[in-house]
């Protein structure tokens, strides 16, 4: 399993559009990818749940990936967070 932590910089937090883009990114990989924040862990491929977490600016999220392509998955998603959130 691979993980990384990231503190959200975007002032709106993980709002609808980046959540949508995140889900799209996650679905490219076979690994099981989860998003944890504020004591909750959610499947990062589920848009409504991710939006429902209400992650805001300053919140620290942990992303984990587990599966055959976990290395490429985690790299791609970390890049996504840095570029978009």
């Amino acid at each position: 399993m691979r993980t990384f932590e990231y503190a959200i910089i975007d002032e709106l937090g993980i709002h609808a559009r980046p959540a949508g883009m995140l889900v799209k990114e996650v679905k490219k990989f076979d690994s099981k990818i989860t998003l944890s924040a504020k004591g909750k862990t959610m499947d990062a491929g589920k848009l409504m749940m991710i939006m429902g977490m209400g992650i805001k600016q300053g919140d620290v999220v942990t992303v984990s990936a587990e599966g055959e392509d976990e290395d490429t998955a985690i790299a791609a998603i970390e890049k996504f967070f840095k570029e978009n959130l």
Binding site: A16, R17, A19, G20, V23, K24, D43, G45, K46, L47, M48, M49
Partner: peptide, 14 residues
């Protein structure tokens, strides 16, 4: 972009 989000919401697993 909102319409793209709509599409993705419509395909949300839950």
């Amino acid at each position: 972009a909102v319409f793209e989000v709509h599409k993705m919401m419509m395909e949300d697993e839950d």
